[in-house]
Amino acid sequence: MAEAVFRIWRGTAAGGQFVEYRTEATTGMVVLDAVHKIQAEQANDLSVRWNCKAGKCGSCSAEINGKPRLMCMTRLNELPLEKPVTVQPMQAFPIIRDLVTDVSWNFEVKRKIRKFSPRAADAPDGTWRMAQADVDRVQEFRKCIECFLCQDVCHVLREHKYFDTFIGPRYFVYAAALEMQPIDKENRLSDLRDPHNIGYCNIGKCCTNVCPEEIKITDNAIIPLKERVVDEFYDPLRMLFRVFK
């Protein structure tokens, strides 16, 4: 492979612009490697988050050629290198600097979801018995690496900025994991309807399409939750109204 051109967004909350960098693209390189190479050789103060470099920690989220992705799992050989590769921070969240955004809102939202609360233990030694099949269903949701790419792409947050009234796909996945946890006895359906407003979601699946863990966010988490909410509080008119609000 030869030289590739990267247009990386540089700036702060006050403003910024794309800056062009040229760097060598070698076999197997991912976008994060290129960003690191540029950081080490040309722009020591370039800001980027990362930890594992293996798609396990969800730190390196960004928008590559306009698509929300993990930089460490995006191979250069799957991008059209004849054109510059654009790398910019997630657009739904406030900018801190360069590729780093302020995702603290997500951590606050999580606290508002009712915590796990187990039923009494099944066995005298304080343990529970669970079937693998029941565990499997929830493990899909527990795979979430909290990269917040789904939050970034969800129009309710990205365009409508309903950060105060909507928890976003990541936290529907989280709530689904708790609701379907085999030994949890809490009920979160009322909260999901209001104040978490699951009704705002129009199941467009943008979130599912960007999830690096391939969690079927809409089909397996949101839709079943919506069904449960509807079963418990049947109120079709209001739901319809909320979708178009």
Binding site: G126, R129, A131, P182
Partner: peptide, 18 residues
């Protein structure tokens, strides 16, 4: 076992234990 009591889900044996 404490982790399980805090919500962790480990893979199971046939009889439903960790």
């Amino acid at each position: 076992k404490e982790l399980e009591a805090w919500g962790a889900l480990f893979d199971r044996t046939r009889d439903g234990r960790i």
